[in-house]
Design a protein around this nucleic acid. Structure first.
Lengths: 218, 218
DNA sequence: GGGACTTTGTGAACGGAGGAACAAGCCCGT
DNA sequence: ACGGGCTTGTTCCTCCGTTCACAAAGTCCC
């Protein structure tokens, strides 16, 4: 599961960069010129020292006594995350979740363009969702090539997920976001992130149950 | 963010329990009587020693030389996760994502029942999604009481998320799954988990970009 | 019944991440 | 020019989580 050594940036730091990015965008919208690590930490819901250490991995982007220049830091983090350009994505699986993802506006705002939609069901092929025509799974490879896609989103039922992942990888996709509740096995060099909604809920129930059993000791 | 000490189970272990649960369900479907930590580890995509240590936190559920009894372990993990009964949930925000979540069948299969749907837009109130009528946000508290809901799902636009969270907590909800890309501030004793789809994609692009820059050193 | 084999449960080493604290550096007012 | 006040960058320490390795314990076969 480990995406191997990407450089020398801790994985935990990478996971926080998008959160900083979002906070900085809010600051930029308010026309704030600079921000302190403390303020940024508060907005991101983390510790101030952590913010400074995270940012220091990329160089000295701040000014002592002043803080960080919002625009400059925005640019640097965008660059680190590879968000200087939009990323075309393909979503495979046009069920409830796939359709919702296709319609979800939050992607384009943050640098991701749904370039292609794919389903294995020929009955769905040809219909248009969010302005994009649904193609058949068989055409995945040519779509990936044509749109230069490197990110694939799997929104299929569980049994189909591994097969779709294999086809994505064969087509040249190197980053996969998997919504199917299965553990994908992929070769070295392919990044996979998994989002399992039921797992999140089950983690919540664990703590909920514990609170009930232990009693409200607060 | 830390849900405080729930007992003495490491948070990382809790997060893996649902994964084990899913693997065990697959094993049960195949009528496998027992499973070794090694096999289970492979299915869950983790280390065998980790599986054993995780499970040992709850007692000795295995038999040396044999492995773990699938049915028994299933029962124990379900019990630990509080999945001996179904959990009624309320989804707030009937946009694309909220509707998709309401229609998503994967919840009910895993112990979660969508008991109520809520939106702030009166134009949406009264319509039926996935067999559940949409109520107005003002009725949240009475819905929570009536259906004995302890889990709330936030699928609103970002600006509304904190207010909804506050209302949920005031109504007695203690566990929140947040899809809005904002950091919620909640009092002690409330569990929050956040799912931010764009963040996941941005993490992928980081590694994608790094691979491109570093070159395929594999 | 006993020995060989298998697998769990756990003690200990190891590595990474988090947080406190402080020195270095920058700005501003006088 | 210079001192006071901030804020960063970094060091050090601690803690949590992972992994190895092995003893304990059970099964199976002869």
């Amino acid at each position: 599961m480990a995406p191997a050594i990407p450089g020398d940036i801790p994985e935990a730091t990478v996971a926080r960069l998008p959160v900083y990015l979002r906070a900085l965008q809010d600051l930029a919208d308010e026309n704030l010129g600079t921000v302190s690590s403390e303020r940024l930490a508060e907005m991101a819901g983390v510790n101030a020292a952590k913010v400074r250490k995270d940012l220091s991995h990329f160089g000295s982007y701040g000014t002592r006594g002043v803080g960080y220049d919002v625009e400059y830091l925005l640019f640097q983090i965008r660059r680190e995350l590879g968000l200087t350009h939009d990323w075309p994505c393909v979503i495979v699986g046009m069920g409830n979740l796939g359709q919702a993802l296709a319609n979800y506006g939050g992607f384009r705002d943050r640098g991701f363009v749904v370039a292609a939609l794919v389903d294995a069901d020929r009955a769905k092929v040809g219909s248009t969702i969010a302005g994009v025509e649904v193609s058949h799974l068989d055409d995945l490879a040519s779509l990936v090539r044509h749109h230069n896609i490197s990110i694939g989103v799997i929104a299929t039922p569980s049994p189909a997920a591994q097969g779709v992942a294999d086809q994505m990888i064969a087509a040249g996709i190197s980053s996969i976001l998997n919504f199917a509740p299965v553990v994908l096995s992929v070769p070295e060099g392919i990044s996979v992130r998994k989002v399992d909604l039921a797992v999140e809920l089950q983690i919540l129930t664990f703590y909920n149950e514990r609170r009930a059993v232990v009693g409200s000791a607060d």
